[in-house]
Write a protein that binds this DNA or RNA. Structure first.
Lengths: 202, 202
DNA sequence: CGGAAATCTTGACGCCGTCAAGATGTTGTC
DNA sequence: GACAACATCTTGACGGCGTCAAGATTTCCG
């Protein structure tokens, strides 16, 4: 889409969105600043008015990924306000669903492509908020005896590890065809979650 | 190290080792075919006699990472032949230890940097062998009532997810300082494993 | 021994991230 | 309303990158 004026108006967000689209179409390897600029209809060096370097754009795209996840988690918490088990399952599934729906965006967000995360405070903040949401779900589950008692942040790390690991394994194709023929990914995920819960959930 | 003859002799392995060293020193972003070639003392296009493209070299480096893990797992199985719980813990820890000791090599091996894995059969074979080792440990644990009964490959996916996820979270810095001050990573890992075992292990 | 095959070098191409210099538009101040 | 300061964007350049083609060198095998 061409722009009317010399100035774009909202180039920063346009670059982030263009980046997400390129990730979806061409994967992590296909993401270049020049292509992102081209897609947004500006010259190849224009992004440097908004991002100090490529890592900064990647950090912004990652932050957007975390924001997307965070908002879905908050929706789920609201939707199943009185059912912590359901919150746990649906949050886990939304995580896996993100990985399947937008693999490259998921990878760049959650697979440590960002090198110096400390230099990107909004990224750290967004990931912290997401983790805090999980802690809240864990605490609700503990209150109902669904999850083992103990420090909620520690249990949350276990749960998050389980789900993150499962999503990663699926993306890497490490889940065998043999297994995939027998049951769906959602069933496998729920099975895995039931390994760490005190009582069965579904 | 200079070489005596026009032909290198074992350039293929030299390139893989050079790649692993560069990963250790400069991270994933610093890995280029030209630097690898330079480190091995050959011209910039020499690698193309042994690898079809950069992805093929990355696949070889990843395969080497899986081989390293596989050999350690087999050592652990032998060392604790009559103690499945110990096998489980030490295998999990060797996985996390790999991530901490050589983060870039770990990432490139286990974090889906390889795009078209089907085109690299030795990589697939090595990852399959590693997974099979885990399945054997799981079955031994199930026989002793340490892990829940059920399809061993399915339970193995749960265990592997847990450990892989934990290692990834640690690498990404998602484990809070607050938590790290209270206990060691090994303690956290053992806590997580105990979430999925029927009886306490240590 | 001689030619085929494997291995390595050289040189080139286009794409990339990044920087410097300058053009263009916007905003705040008197 | 003019104009200076500023933010934004363009143009052009640089070295490094992955990759390919052509040719040089060495090894292998009939």
């Amino acid at each position: 889409m061409p722009r009317k004026s010399y100035h774009h108006g909202d180039l920063k967000n346009a670059l982030i969105q263009a980046g997400i689209q390129i990730l979806a179409k061409e994967g992590v390897a296909g993401l270049s600043l020049r292509k992102v600029a081209g897609k947004a209809g500006v010259s190849h060096a224009a992004p440097y008015a908004h991002f100090t370097d490529k890592q900064a754009l990647i950090a912004a795209i990652s932050t957007e990924g975390y924001r997307r996840l965070y908002e879905r988690i908050e929706d789920i918490i609201r939707q199943y306000a009185d059912d912590p088990s359901k919150q746990l399952i649906e949050t886990a599934w939304t995580y896996v669903d993100f990985a399947l729906t937008d693999p490259a965006h998921f990878k760049i967000t959650f697979s440590g492509v960002i090198e110096q995360e400390k230099e990107h405070p909004t990224f750290v903040e967004m990931s912290q908020k997401s983790f805090d949401s999980v802690v809240r779900i864990v605490e609700a589950c503990q209150a109902q005896g669904v999850l083992e008692a103990g420090p909620s942040d520690l249990v949350a790390v276990s749960v998050w590890s389980q789900v993150h690991g499962f999503a990663s394994l699926v993306l890497e194709g490490q889940v065998s065809h043999n297994l995939l023929d027998r049951m769906s990914l959602r069933e496998m995920l729920i099975f895995s979650l039931n390994q760490i819960t005190k009582v069965a959930i579904a």
